[in-house]
Amino acid sequence: MICCKECIDLLYDYFEGSLDQDTTKSLEEHFEDCPPCIAFLNTYKSTTLLCRDTLNQIEIPDEVRHTLQSFLKEHKKEQEKK
């Protein structure tokens, strides 16, 4: 049987679904006997999802958008003069 350390080393690939069948099976056998590792797996997954949901919603604030727009306009004018 694999130990918790090996189990946690494999979490990444397990989460990606890239483990071979045998390894997946021994990992899942470990989970059956080890509630702490199930808790670890669940919170590992949650962490990834929570961080993504929090950080990938960054929008350009209106004032920044305006600054960028006039910056690009200025730049275009300069280039057209050339």
Binding site: C3, C4, K5, A39
Partner: peptide
């Protein structure tokens, strides 16, 4: 994470997911 000599989890893991 930390493990004991046999490779088992040492800390208490709470499932807050």
């Amino acid at each position: 994470p930390s493990f004991n000599g046999a490779g088992f989890q040492q800390e208490k893991i709470q499932d807050w997911s």
